[in-house]
C-alpha cells in the first residue's frame, strides 16, 4: 500500500491507460502497434494498480489458465485461417490489410482475432511476472 498521492493518481489514470491498450489491440492490423504492444500497455496499467494497492483478489492460477487460453486460441486461429482461407501464416509476410473492405476495422480475416489473442496472452503473462515479484517467494 503506497501513499495517498500514488493511489489517487493511479486510480485516475488507470482507465485511460487501459483504454489505450485496448485500442492498440483492436486496431492491430491497421495502425502501428498490435498484440504485443497493446498487451504490454494493458499489463503495465494492471501493474500500476498492483504497485499502488496490492494484489488482493488476483489469483495467479487463474491468470496462468487465461494465458494458456490465449495461446491456444492463437494456435487454433492459425489452424482455422490456414484451413479455411489461403494460408494465414503466409499472409503475414504480405501486406496485412487485404481482403474485403480493406482499411476498415472489420477486415483482414482472422488477423485481428489473432491480435486480440496475443494481447490477452501478453497481458496475462506480464501480470504473472509482476505478481510473482510482488509476492516475493
Amino acid at each position: 500500500m503506497m501513499s495517498r498521492i500514488v493511489r489517487d493518481v493511479s486510480r485516475l489514470t488507470f482507465p485511460l491507460f487501459a483504454m489505450f491498450g485496448f485500442y492498440l489491440v483492436a486496431h492491430g492490423h491497421l495502425t502501428p502497434g498490435g498484440g504485443f504492444q497493446g498487451g504490454a500497455i494493458i499489463a503495465s496499467s494492471i501493474a500500476m494498480i498492483m504497485v499502488a494497492y496490492g494484489i488482493y483478489g488476483l489469483k495467479e492460477k487463474l491468470l496462468s489458465i487465461s494465458e494458456l487460453a490465449g495461446l491456444f486460441s492463437f494456435l487454433i486461429l492459425v489452424y482455422f485461417g490456414s484451413h479455411f482461407a489461403h494460408s494465414a501464416v503466409e499472409e503475414w509476410f504480405k501486406l496485412p490489410v487485404v481482403g474485403p473492405n480493406a482499411g476498415h476495422l472489420i477486415s483482414a480475416g482472422v488477423i485481428p482475432l489473432m491480435s486480440i489473442a496475443v494481447g490477452f496472452e501478453v497481458a496475462c503473462g506480464i501480470s504473472i511476472i509482476v505478481i510473482a515479484m510482488r509476492k516475493g517467494d
Partner: peptide, 10 residues
Amino acid sequence: SVGAALTTAI
C-alpha cells in the same frame, strides 16, 4: 510500455 512502465514497476 516495457521500458518506462513495467521495469519501473518491477
